[in-house]
Simulated assay, not measured.
Amino acid sequence: MSSVAVVTGASAGVGRATARELARGGTRVALLARGSVGLAAAAREIRAAGGTALPIETDMADHAQVEAAAERVTAELGDIDLWINGAFTSVFAPFVEIDPAEFRRVTEVTYLGYVHGTRVALDRMLPRDRGTIVQVGSALAYRSIPLQSAYCGAKHAIVGFTESLRCELLHSRSRVRVTMVHLPAVNTPQFDWVLSRLDRHPQPVPPIYQPEVAARAIVYAASRPGRREYWIGASTVATILANRIAPALLDRYLGRTGYRSQQADWPADPHRPENLWHPADGTGGVDFGAHGSFDGRAHRHSPQAWMSRHRRSLTAGAVALVAGTAAVGAALGRR
Rank of each mutant, 00 (worst) to 15 (best):
L126Q: 13
Q262S: 03
A326Y: 10
R28F: 05
Q148D: 05
T188K: 09
M180Q: 12
L249K: 10
V66T: 00
S196L: 13
T325Q: 03
R312F: 09
A23L: 00
I245C: 14
D251A: 09
M60E: 02
G137S: 09
G284C: 06
D199T: 15
F288T: 06
G285P: 07
R119P: 10
P267L: 00
A217D: 10
D59N: 04
R72V: 12
S313V: 14
S223M: 13
P94Q: 02
M125Q: 15
P184D: 04
W266Y: 03
T325R: 02
W193D: 15
W306S: 06
A238R: 13
H291N: 07
A5C: 08
A53V: 03
V134R: 07
P273A: 00
P247E: 12
A154N: 07
T315R: 09
I56E: 01
G284D: 06
Q190M: 15
A290H: 03
K155S: 06
P247C: 12
R309E: 09
A157G: 08
L112R: 01
G113R: 01
A222K: 12
R72F: 14
E102F: 02
P247N: 09
A234K: 11
T283H: 07
A290T: 07
A154S: 14
D281G: 04
A318V: 15
A141F: 15
P225G: 12
D123M: 05
H278I: 13
R227E: 13
A121L: 10
E212W: 15
L77T: 04
L321K: 00
G9F: 11
R227L: 12
P267E: 01
A264C: 02
I56C: 02
T118L: 09
A23R: 01
A49P: 14
A70M: 15
R173E: 14
T236I: 09
D79T: 02
H278V: 12
R175T: 08
M125E: 15
E67N: 05
I208S: 03
S196R: 10
G86M: 01
D81H: 03
T74R: 01
C167L: 08
S3F: 08
F288I: 05
T132Q: 14
R105D: 01
P184H: 06
M180S: 09
T118H: 09
S302P: 13
A93C: 02
G78P: 06
D287M: 00
R105K: 00
T118D: 09
S196M: 14
V194W: 08
H291C: 04
M60Q: 03
P127I: 08
S149Y: 06
V205Q: 14
R34S: 04
R143N: 11
G117M: 03
H182L: 02
R216D: 12
A43R: 03
D295P: 05
L82Q: 02
A40W: 07
T315E: 13
A61T: 00
P247D: 13
R130I: 15
L54Q: 01
R300M: 05
L183S: 08
S172A: 13
P247A: 11
A318H: 08
V4M: 05
T58C: 02
A320K: 03
V213G: 10
H116M: 06
P184N: 04
R143Y: 08
E102M: 01
E45T: 10
E71N: 14
F95Y: 15
G137T: 10
T283W: 04
V106G: 01
R300I: 05
L77G: 02
R216W: 13
S302D: 05
P207T: 10
L22I: 09
N187L: 08
V178G: 03
F103Y: 01
